[in-house]
Amino acid sequence: MSGGGFFEVPSDLQNTWWGLVGWQLQLTLVPVLCGLVIALPIALLCRRFGWIYPPVLGVATVFYAIPSLAFFVFLIDWFSESDLTVEIPLTVYTLVVLVPAIVDGMRSVSADTRAAAEAMGFGTLRRYFQVELPIAVPAVFAGLRVATVSSVSLVSVGMLIGNEGALGNLLSDALNYHRPQLAWDAVISIAVIGVLLDALLVLARRLLTPWARKATAK
């Protein structure tokens, strides 16, 4: 617990810096991936049955408004102080960002393109998967970027419920032992992970949508 290097983690956390980084990534990416997997069918349903979209959006907004700490607390009752308690709210927040991103992205497909697909004999489902979803990919990635970066940051709050905050756990030691260096470590590491994940998503989008490159380049 003595001074030491930037990446030295106090022994009471029983982890290494790389261990914390791995944990941080797990707590961030599991919710984002689950969110994406759940958001897709919900978005398709909203696209197919337009009338359910406004209520879905309303419920989502309400969930999104609930502060993460309160959300964690409600879940302690069922999942005690575990990874799941952190991952479930983050999954919900991801959903709230992704469902509108996908639906609006699919809706933004021009009427001309849609009519052309229909005229070529695409069925509704086939049109969703082969025309509208691919065209919605940039919008989906924009949503993924927001969801991922805010999840990286929110994971730290898990520290308050039984040290479930990965790199955020450094913060409690920083405050308790008055070691600003640990706080610096946490803030910088988390910010760098956020920026790197964001950059990876931008790269992935460019690879997936070569046709959109010109539009995004300007």
Partner: peptide, 13 residues
Amino acid sequence: ALPSFGLLVLLTI
């Protein structure tokens, strides 16, 4: 990308 909770603790320290 700035972790607000981290920032809060850092600035308080």
